[in-house]
Nucleic acid binder design. Structure first.
Lengths: 354, 354
DNA sequence: CGGTTTTCTGGGAGCGATCCCAGAATTTAA
DNA sequence: TTAAATTCTGGGATCGCTCCCAGAAAACCG
């Protein structure tokens, strides 16, 4: 550690006692000033604050955590990012931005845990659970039956998910969108404009976002009296590759539209269509989900469902910290609005200029 | 577990002493077992390990940090993400994946700090510097003259950047690509195929990635004997909006190609071109930089420079942890390879199928 | 077998904060 | 002026570890 004499000026950080000495007061008084407690005379407070400012002092977080049992940090867990979230879309980084915006503002640090495919799941989870560097957890894109949830509940760890929970509802706080209605809206839009053999390439069906979007698809067909044809339902995952493959599987059947469970899938569909010489929306209509920024830029621009991802992250972080601070009673559920954005891929004239 | 009869099983975590008692040994011995130290008899070790396993015990990280002065966590700082990194591309999330892959593997936690536009810079930086929850920092997309660097060096904090440093080189460890040569290659490719009035829309010129790519552009022109025309050089930032605006500015001048400093900019250019009824590559050729996944999917598919972002993150994390562990001597510089990927936007027949 | 070396074990001190309690200083009340 | 309430301040105990040192047990060796 280069602890030899000089050359490297590793200036050992000061502590409360040092500041106290400099200010001519006691440890306790400095602590009171730092934590904005009452019962410190104005004169003393000013003096101490001056010394703190002068020295650029800030208290050792480990020592603080040891006694308060609070870390002032929250964690974000994303199991299996490669499967769940393709790097084609900005969902994930947008969510992170929304989260960190709030954590920074509310003076918390943010820990990130991304599970890689091929990781030893068990080890990964143990590590997260045992890592007590955080006061609570935001869990994104986890399988609904992920054992992580049971463990978190058993350990009494505060957590918030950004999907609808299917189990442990009475113990789960979450912020999400109404995926069912949103998907239904998308598919109904296709039906309304004359498409009746509508296929879907689903997202991960063990994630509620995926499950619910499929439900929305079914609902739309049902209320239009269109029979549910399992040939037209391709179970897949939320990424481009799956969209590409899914499109190819669909070739064996007749269809005039595809509802892709997210934009990454839609992207894969477009790529396959391009290679196959199929034209969108002439040969089939296409609707996505997410409204990633790139959607306007595709050929043709993609009709999709817009969801407020940044807000989702922000709400999740606020909810979690509220929970940690005991400001709110569990369980909480926050539902954010979505909107169908009509562009060209669905075959209806876009309302946007361009 | 749940060893009391109350409703809320907030099971107070055990500590070394508890484990010691259960195993019939002392605190110190348990500590030795946990830290894999020698001088513990095989029998004792087995016994203690059994108790630890049974109780699912893991030592309190705050207590550990307090005495070892090591947090086993590293931080990632991205100042001004909105300007530097557009959410159109996956650069940022890919980098994070590369980093977390290594930190997880090397048993470190990862702290994330994203500066938002509109944040109080000063406050943000103080917070990062004062937050001693990490042993070192990876700094991405910071301005070359960011005062953060001086502060980090002064504080003796280990850090790694993912851009070429322009100041404090003898104190800076970094991993990057050869932006100059890569950009030069891209522009030379355009020249070689008959483009001679080549414009460029730059990235942030206060980030070395941006600066170096402009240098590469100049070099290419120079070695081809093409005069440098400032009208054709639009200073901008690494995002789509700037690409869109830049394209519009260029309309006042005559050009037959554009070198966009990254793919997000290229995306903006394509959008503007589309709106203006200009065709790529017929009206002008376009080359980007980054090879974001979406590049193949654009219309036309984008010719661009591929850079290994995942590896960049992984190398940065490894380097940082090596530095922290004293396994490596500062300063270190790691240069990763890039590759020109020819698709269709440059007007040369793509080598890829499709 | 006694003495030296090596292995093994336990407990005190300390990391740097907060919390709590007791006592001093000040203000208020009577 | 004195008693009682209130404000202010300091220091001991504590959080749960690691580090260090000393002493006990075991292994080695001439």
């Amino acid at each position: 550690m280069t602890n030899n004499n000089s050359i490297r000026p590793i200036n050992k950080a000061m502590n409360l006692e040092d500041i106290a000495a400099k200010a001519g007061v006691s440890r306790s008084t400095v602590s009171r000033v730092i934590n904005n407690e009452p019962y410190v005379s104005a004169k003393t407070r000013t003096k101490v604050e001056a010394v703190i400012e002068e020295e650029g002092f800030s208290p050792n977080p480990a020592a603080r955590t040891l006694v308060t049992q609070r870390t002032k940090a929250i964690g974000i867990v994303i199991p299996h990012i490669l499967n769940a979230i393709s790097s084609d879309d900005a969902y994930f980084s947008t969510l992170l931005r929304g989260i960190t915006e709030v954590t920074t503002q509310r003076d918390h640090a943010t820990l990130l845990w991304l599970e890689q495919t091929g990781d030893d799941e068990e080890r990964f989870r143990r590590r997260i659970l045992q890592n007590r560097m955080m006061d609570g957890l935001i869990v994104a894109s986890a399988a609904t039956n992920d054992p992580l949830f049971a463990h978190l509940i058993e350990a009494g760890t505060h957590f918030v998910t950004v999907e609808r929970p299917t189990q442990f509802r009475e113990h789960t706080n979450y912020v999400t969108i109404d995926n069912v209605t949103a998907a239904q809206t998308a598919v109904e839009h296709l039906i309304k404009h004359g498409r009746h053999r509508i296929a879907t390439i689903t997202g991960n069906l063990n994630i509620s976002d995926g499950e619910d979007r499929l439900t929305g698809y079914r609902n739309a067909l049902e209320s239009a009296g269109i029979p549910y044809d399992t040939n037209l339902v391709i179970p897949a995952q939320f990424n481009r590759h799956n969209g590409y493959q899914g499109m190819k599987e669909l070739l064996n059947f007749k269809f005039d539209a595809i509802f892709a469970a997210n934009d990454a899938i839609a992207l894969g569909v477009m790529q396959a269509a391009r290679e196959l010489g199929l034209r969108i929306p002439d040969d089939f209509a296409l609707v996505g989900f997410d409204d990633m920024n790139i959607a306007t830029q595709l050929n043709p621009p993609l009709t999709t469902i817009h969801q407020p991802v940044l807000e989702k992250g922000a709400h999740a972080a606020n909810l979690l910290i509220d929970l940690i601070e005991g400001k709110v009673k569990t369980p909480q559920a926050i539902l954010l609005p979505t909107e169908l954005i009509i562009r060209e891929s669905c075959g209806v004239k876009s309302k946007e200029t361009g």
